[in-house]
Structures are given as structure tokens and as C-alpha cells.
Computed example of a mutant assay.
Amino acid sequence: APAPGSSRVSRIKVAQVTRVPAAEAPPAPGVCPPSGVRLTNDDGDAAMGLRVVGLRLENCGKRDYALDGYPQLELLDDDLAPVHGVRIFHGSSGISTGSGFDDPARPLVLKPGQSAVSGLMWRNLTEFGTAVNVPYVRVRAKEGAAPVTVTPHLDLGTTGKLAVRAWAREAS
């Protein structure tokens, strides 16, 4: 018999499990990895076929962290193998306008405690061909940075296009 005030739920079904290599897993909340930067993704936003997932890079270390450009991306399938046939564009590539994705890349230095944001954008259109789903994205904040594998579950449809926004200082 359930204890007073306890839940009546007696069974749970796991609908989906994601796994990433331990060395590439995003850190737990409140944990700063040895690199001194914490890279995470948000849950995304979707409206009328337009999808956007935000990337956030926080300097949780003790030294300044310089960025200049775009995050480096590798799209991965369910088995963590590279996904081919998707073009990654710097800027919106006409996917949508007015989103900040076409703002030029500018050098920036994150002081400890500061953050930068980027994002991924695509249209989930399904026309001719096979729809592409990308459960994992291996992200490097910049050339030579340690990879972090995030799980945004991109439903790219059949467009074969993914836009990435340049790093920009997070508005405080």
C-alpha cells in the first residue's frame, strides 16, 4: 500500500535513452569541466516548420576565453556515426530572416562568469527523398576545443540544410 502522500504511480516506461561518450558529455548543472567552459543546448523552439535550438557557452573557469567565429559541428546518427548529406551554413542561408543568424562573426573574450550564445536553425520540410533525423551533434566551441556531444534531436526533414549562428555575447 502506498504511504500517505505518496504517488499512485507504480510503473514507469522509459521512452527514449540517449548516450554520449563520457568524455564528451555536457557537465552536470553546477559542475565546471577541466576546460573551464560549459557548453549546453536548450530544448529548442518550433513554429510552422521553423526550428531553432540554442547553444550556450559559459566561461566557468578562472581565465579569459576567446572566441571568433562559429561553433564547429559534426552531425551524428543513433550509433554516433557521422551523418552525411546535410550542408551546414554559416548564417541563415535563407532559411529565415530577422533571427540574428546573419549577424557577422566578431571576436569576443569571455571573462570568468560570462557567456556566449549561438544556435542551430532549420526547416522541417518533407518533400522528395528520405527525411533526416540527427539525434546528436558534436560541438567544438572553436578550433582545437574539446568536443561536447549534445542531444538536440534535429528533425531536418528533406531540406539537407542546417544553419549555425556565430557566437555572440549573451545579453545580460
Rank of each mutant, 00 (worst) to 15 (best):
D103W: 10
L120M: 14
L120C: 05
Y70F: 13
A105W: 03
R106W: 01
L110F: 11
L120W: 06
E127I: 14
A116K: 01
F128M: 12
G69K: 00
A116Q: 02
G100T: 13
S115A: 15
L76E: 10
T126R: 11
G100C: 14
I88C: 06
H90P: 07
D102R: 05
I88S: 04
G85A: 03
Q72A: 00
T126H: 12
L73V: 06
L110P: 12
P104W: 01
A116F: 05
F89T: 08
V117H: 09
D103L: 13
D103V: 10
G85S: 05
H90L: 03
L76S: 11
R87I: 03
T97F: 15
I88M: 08
K111Q: 15
D79G: 14
S93G: 13
P104R: 00
V117L: 12
S99L: 15
F101G: 05
L120R: 12
Q114I: 06
L80V: 10
S99K: 15
V86K: 02
L110K: 07
G94F: 08
H90V: 01
D77N: 14
F128S: 14
G113S: 04
D102E: 10
D78M: 10
W122L: 01
G98C: 12
W122Y: 15
E74H: 06
L110G: 02
T97Y: 15
E127V: 15
L108S: 00
H84D: 13
D103C: 01
A116W: 05
D103M: 08
Q72W: 01
R87S: 11
L76D: 09
G94S: 01
Q72T: 01
P104A: 00
L75P: 12
L110R: 07
L75F: 09
V83K: 02
D68C: 02
L73H: 01
Y70M: 00
W122C: 05
G69P: 08
G98T: 13
D68F: 10
A116H: 04
I95Q: 02
G98W: 15
F101D: 02
G129N: 08
D102V: 05
Q114N: 04
L120H: 09
G69I: 03
V86N: 03
F101A: 03
S93A: 14
L108H: 03
D103A: 13
H84K: 13
P71K: 00
S92H: 05
L80M: 10
Y70I: 00
G98N: 13
R123Q: 11
K111D: 07
L120S: 10
M121F: 08
H84F: 08
R87E: 14
G113I: 04
A81I: 00
G129W: 12
V109L: 07
P112M: 08
G69Y: 00
G113K: 07
A105D: 00
M121D: 03
L80N: 09
P71L: 02
A116P: 07
V83Y: 03
E127Q: 14
G98H: 14
G85K: 04
F128G: 11
